[in-house]
């Protein structure tokens, strides 16, 4: 069996088991209403985590994601409320800025040979600082477009509401799956994660691929910022603090190897859903501090890293030679 599938199956099994246990305690959690909220509440995290999946698959890390989300919400708020642009125009500008930002980080990582950890850490400070310079205070967004979007939803059987941002997240995951597994760019991402030296010798355009990976991650962080803005109707420089770490956790819990090369975008979806499940459970319980979410996620993360070591560090089983001659 494909080695990428094993950790994914483990995550899926744990998710199903945890969901069944939660339903046994709180039968209401089985409704599509809860599911709808699940998708809405985690939309920005899910979208950012798709970008993070590509980065980690290639063997890198992107610490700037949360800061880019925060910056984007402020930029959109400024453009809509102070400049007076239509939100759609503001979204386009914000996405373009985020894309350029990511391209710059990717170029620095490749051409200056600086580890992605350092470059994106600098990017994180830069984006967070720029957001504060734009506006240190929270800016509320009042616009008819925001009202319309937040009132729009698809009704699911059972009365659950699939919001616009929830749909956006699902579409981003679908696109991510297609890009990762069905395009040359996707195969290059895995190639870089497998071995950059081999990839270069095999003709992978390493420079272009690296720049594109970080461009993709930042653009999706920008899109997550758009979703966050729609979700909270406000722009604030301290929005989405630490979301990059939640995204990394979702990716790793979803079965992607932190050292790159192995993993599936679909796994990240389950990773995000598992985090959402823990949050929802704690809300249902009502007596637990919300910090328990972090503790459970931490424990899960630790467990999955152990699991990955067991699954991956074991010497690969070598097949016997099957010669036809």
């Amino acid at each position: 069996m494909n080695r990428s599938l094993r950790p994914l199956l483990a995550t899926a099994a744990i998710f199903v088991l945890a969901y069944l246990l939660a339903i046994a305690q709180f039968p209401a959690m089985a409704s599509t209403r809860v599911l709808g909220n699940f998708l809405t509440d985690n939309a920005f995290l899910g979208i950012a985590a798709v970008g993070m999946t590509f980065v980690i698959l290639s063997g890198g890390i992107d610490l700037s994601v949360g800061a880019v989300i925060g910056f984007t919400t402020v930029l959109i708020a400024v453009l809509v409320m102070w400049v007076g642009l239509h939100p759609l125009a503001a979204f386009a500008i914000a996405l373009a800025v985020a894309a350029l930002f990511g391209a710059g980080m990717g170029a620095a990582i490749y051409y200056l040979r600086v580890p992605s950890f350092i470059v994106t850490l600098a990017g994180m400070f830069l984006a967070r600082g720029a957001a504060s310079v734009l506006s240190p205070d929270s800016i509320g967004i009042k616009h008819s477009f925001y009202t319309t979007v937040s009132k729009s939803y698809l009704l699911m059987p059972g009365g659950g509401r699939l919001s616009v941002v929830g749909i956006m997240m699902l579409l981003v995951f679908l696109a991510g799956i297609v890009i990762a597994h069905r395009t040359r760019f996707g195969s290059y991402v895995y190639a870089l994660g497998g071995s950059e030296t081999s990839a270069a010798l095999m003709g992978v355009p390493v420079a272009r691929t690296t720049v594109l990976i970080y461009t993709l991650s930042s653009t999706l962080a920008g899109l997550a910022g758009v979703v966050f803005s729609l979700y909270t109707s406000a722009g604030y420089s301290l929005n989405a603090l630490g979301v990059e770490l939640d995204a990394i956790a979702a990716v790793v819990i979803g079965g992607t190897l932190l050292t790159g090369g192995y993993g599936l975008v679909a796994g990240t979806f389950i990773g995000v859903m598992l985090q959402g499940l823990v949050q929802t459970y704690i809300v249902f319980d009502g007596t637990l501090s919300s910090w328990w979410t972090k503790i459970v996620i931490g424990a899960l993360l630790f467990m999955f890293i152990l699991l990955q070591r067991l699954l991956h560090s074991a010497a690969p089983r070598r097949r016997k030679i099957l010669w036809t001659a």
Binding site: S187, G193, S198, G203
Partner: peptide, 25 residues
């Protein structure tokens, strides 16, 4: 061996030269 241990044999044979249709491999 300067190939990619984490990818399939087929992909290792044709990486960078995969035939595509509408951008899909």
């Amino acid at each position: 061996v300067n190939l990619l241990p984490n990818r399939s044999v087929a992909e290792n044979l044709f990486l960078g030269h995969q035939p595509t249709r509408w951008g899909l491999i």
